[in-house]
């Protein structure tokens, strides 16, 4: 009996390690918390624009895609620690991130939008924002934007996911949310969205928001980066990209 258990353990461990090192598998991380870019549907399937783009790219490259779900603030540390090979998760290309990882060409242009409860008037000058409570997701470009523009004159609250920001906007714990335009529009169209309102002008300052959304890979994986860029060119020119774009944003 003991022998059998030993054999089973050895075989089991062997299976785990061999599958992790098998070739032609690309492990792609996404957050599954930012619909419609990436989310988990009612049946537990990972879905979204990012997921379809990842699938199209992997099909183009002829590699097997493995989805890895990763919390947002552990994304880049996880990539560096080789928990996965690429991040395709609505991640903006910023100078700060470029210092530690490489990005593919942009596959989406993102803006930030301010969201508040209907009927609130917000003065966006530094003076007018004094003491306002603003919700951002931890480790996002929007967090950097608020910090850069308003500094310590506002009370920045850091959240784990975009959804928890919305909860605290409804409860009145925060005055404003800054989040991605697509997420904000999606929220407004939802059931409770009627109580919400987009205010101010879109945030497009590339100093904070970066130059579009790209695929992040480790610095040393130059081959993978090249393949992703080439595959992005292909799906953009052969219509696959447009099809996926229309599916999620039109």
């Amino acid at each position: 009996m003991r022998k059998i258990i030993c054999i089973l353990i050895v075989v089991g461990l062997g299976a785990i390690f061999s599958s992790a090192s098998a070739q032609n598998v690309v492990r792609i991380a996404n957050e599954t918390a930012t619909p419609p870019f990436n989310f988990v549907d009612g049946d537990g399937n990972i879905k979204g624009f990012d997921v379809d783009i990842a699938a199209a790219l992997c099909a183009e490259l002829g590699v097997k895609k493995v989805d890895i779900i990763q919390d947002w603030d552990g994304m880049i540390p996880g990539l560096i620690a080789k928990k996965f090979d690429a991040i395709i998760s609505d991640m903006s290309i910023t100078d700060k991130r470029l210092k530690v990882v490489n990005f593919s060409q942009s596959y989406y242009d993102e803006q930030g939008l301010f969201l508040t409860l209907k009927g609130k008037t917000i003065d966006f000058s530094v003076e007018g924002m004094k003491g306002k409570k603003i919700a951002v997701q931890r480790a996002t470009t929007f967090a950097n934007y608020i910090k850069g523009i308003y500094g310590s004159s506002v009370d920045i609250k850091y959240y784990e996911t975009p959804a928890s920001q919305i909860l605290d906007l409804f409860s009145g714990r925060v005055d404003l949310i800054l989040a991605s335009d697509v997420f904000v529009h999606k929220t407004i169209e939802s059931e409770d969205g009627a109580k919400l309102e987009i205010v101010g002008s879109p945030v497009i300052d590339s100093k904070y928001i970066g130059d579009g959304v790209g695929i992040a890979v480790r610095k040393q994986d130059t081959e993978l980066l090249k393949s992703f860029n080439k595959a992005l060119d292909t799906i953009k020119s052969n219509g696959t990209y447009d099809k996926i774009y229309d599916k999620w944003f039109m």
């Binding site: 603030d73 552990g74 880049i76 991130r97 931890r138 480790a139 850091y158």
Partner: peptide
């Protein structure tokens, strides 16, 4: 909380 914010800035977990 502060540690996690700093990690977001430095990527040094």
């Amino acid at each position: 909380g502060i540690t996690r914010n700093l990690i977001a800035e430095t990527f040094m977990p």
